[in-house]
Amino acid sequence: MKKSRFLVAGLTLVALFIGMFAGGVLAKSDYPSRPIEFVVPFNPGGGSDNMARMIAAIYDKERILPQPLVVVNKAGGSGSVGMSYVQTKNGDPYVIMTAVPQVLTVPLTTGSTDVLHWTKLTPIALLALDEFMLVVRYDSPYQNVKELVNAAKAAPKTIKFGGSEVGSEDSILTDIFAQKAGVQFNYIPFKSGGEVMTALLGGHLDVVWANPNEAMSQMEAKKVRVLAVANRERLKGAPNIPTLKENGIDVHWQMLRGIFAAPGIKDAERKVLEKAMKKLTDSPTWKKDFIEANFLTPKYMDSKAYAQFLKDKEAEYKAILKNLGVLK
């Protein structure tokens, strides 16, 4: 009886191994020879997730790589969970991730740059820049930036300004805006862009930051008014919206949307990914359904330029965060 049980166990084990090897081992050929895991370090439904799924769809449709990208959400810790996951995949070219500025700011604000840092990843390409718009309700008393600033001057810290948590881009941008305009706002942090827009529409906030894809459809329906965009130039897709600079407040801030790969991958592999991303940004579907539809600024940078750009940005953020007292 005892013997037969061991036999059963042994047989099963052998079968398990054989079966899994048959499934698991793949003929090694040129990179990529199997699907690539595309990590989104945020929950489904956000801007990063939308971008990743759009990219995966275009890769699929236009056969940019012989293997598909499989979008995987690894949300948590404002992106740090997904980021640390990719960091552990040293030398594995089958893991890439979407990158937004949280990749730079979160390690700084949480004081974890020693364990979590973008230099522990491989920058592949910068794809686009997203805009920040200054938005009020349609029936708001503030018709333009000047009126908003004057109201804030008259009564400091009373205008309810909504955005995401302190230390995030929204809050940093608010602080810069307030500093340059010489005013103070009552900044109220929320969890997501959707919540901020809801609170604005419901009359719980006076003014908020929103990305164009959140703001434009509300503007067309005359629910909100966009006072300005935090760019030096007016947007091509929305030429009627003035810039903050035109209003005498020289604030320029854009959200970087890019792609990272795991650390320690081979140069050849990096080049394959780089080329694929270039091809993506040249595709008409990308230009029309993603860039134009979301009012983004297309901006391609290859691995090297992107790395340099990140380095500069990090220094810039550091200085700003120090100035704002978020960093010591």
Binding site: M54, N213, M216, S217, A221, K223
Partner: peptide, 10 residues
């Protein structure tokens, strides 16, 4: 949005 629609109040 991926289907080219504009979800919004309209």
């Amino acid at each position: 949005m991926m289907y080219g629609l504009r979800p919004g109040p309209l």
